[in-house]
């Protein structure tokens, strides 16, 4: 049984009294412990897909199945399922009135997860992310990279089984992004968590994922998926022949449906 499955999912938005088809007949599967990237041009509905999975927005049609629980546009998802998912936003989305530690522990407060065990786990993650020194500061004193790191820790503090990441490192400089990617891979290997990672950066998708779903625009749809088998998943893979081939394949797939139209 797949960890996450979307069948025939469509989403329409109302824009200026006109219906806009953002997603059309999305079908995808993610296995347990898999690292999947969804890659495509801006505006193709990548972020909408993980918001539908996380039940932040409802699909217009189709069903989503997560960990054996099915939901659609009429059924709310059970609270136990919410706890199995962690969401990382494009920006760190830390609350400026809370300290870094309070921000990180916010999901524990919302889910009512009290006790020493949870506090210790939060401290462990803060320490692991190298944020012990800044945990009692307010977010305004953090760099963008550190803020984003806090956003990732917050998404993991309640021990989710699925991590949904919406272009989390898109606003970082190249060097910081590479470092964060490597750290994310370490976390994934250690925890065995299932990850869906949204990006428009093809090389990032190839470096990180075991499978990449390729999306096209107007309307947003999946045009294919590619299984990525790299011998190594670290920065040295960037110069690997297969890495370049995968990037080229995805680039041509997106280009074949008219990248110039998307841009």
């Amino acid at each position: 049984m797949s960890k996450i499955e979307m069948r025939g999912v469509s989403k329409k938005f109302m824009a200026r009294r006109e219906e806009l088809l953002a997603l059309c007949d999305i079908n995808l599967r993610v296995e347990e412990g898999e690292f999947v990237c969804i890659v495509g041009p801006s505006g193709c509905g990548k972020s909408t897909i993980i918001r539908i999975i996380d039940d932040i927005i409802k699909p217009t049609a189709g069903v989503v199945k997560v960990d054996g629980v099915t939901y659609d546009n009429s059924l709310p998802i059970p609270r136990e399922l919410v706890r199995k998912m962690g969401f990382v936003f494009q920006t760190s989305n830390l609350y400026p009135w809370l300290t870094v530690r309070e921000n990180i522990c916010l999901p524990l407060k919302i889910f009512g997860l009290r006790g020493r065990e949870w506090a210790e786990y939060a401290d462990f993650l803060i320490d692991r992310a190298g944020m012990a020194g800044s945990a009692d500061q307010y977010p305004r004193s953090l760099s963008r990279g550190m803020s984003q790191r806090a956003g990732v820790v917050r998404a993991m503090v309640h021990r989710p089984e699925i991590l949904l990441m919406d272009e989390p490192f898109g606003s970082l400089d190249e060097r910081t992004r590479e470092r964060m990617n490597v750290e994310l891979l370490d976390i994934w290997r250690e925890s065995g968590i299932t990850v869906i990672f949204i990006t428009h950066n093809i090389s990032e998708a190839v470096l990180l994922s075991q499978r990449a779903y390729i999306m096209a625009i107007d309307p947003g749809r999946v045009i294919g998926d590619v299984e990525i088998r790299l011998k190594r998943r670290d920065l040295s893979a960037l110069s690997d022949y297969h890495f370049v081939e995968y990037c080229d394949y995805i680039n041509r797939s997106i280009g074949s449906i008219g990248l110039e139209k998307a841009i």
Partner: peptide
């Protein structure tokens, strides 16, 4: 709206959303 989206993502109750966000 992004701050509210975090509360939606955690399925916070109305009371929690009001108090925490």
């Amino acid at each position: 709206p992004l701050r509210l989206e975090l509360m939606q993502s955690l399925k916070a109750t109305r009371y929690q959303t009001m108090r925490c966000c």
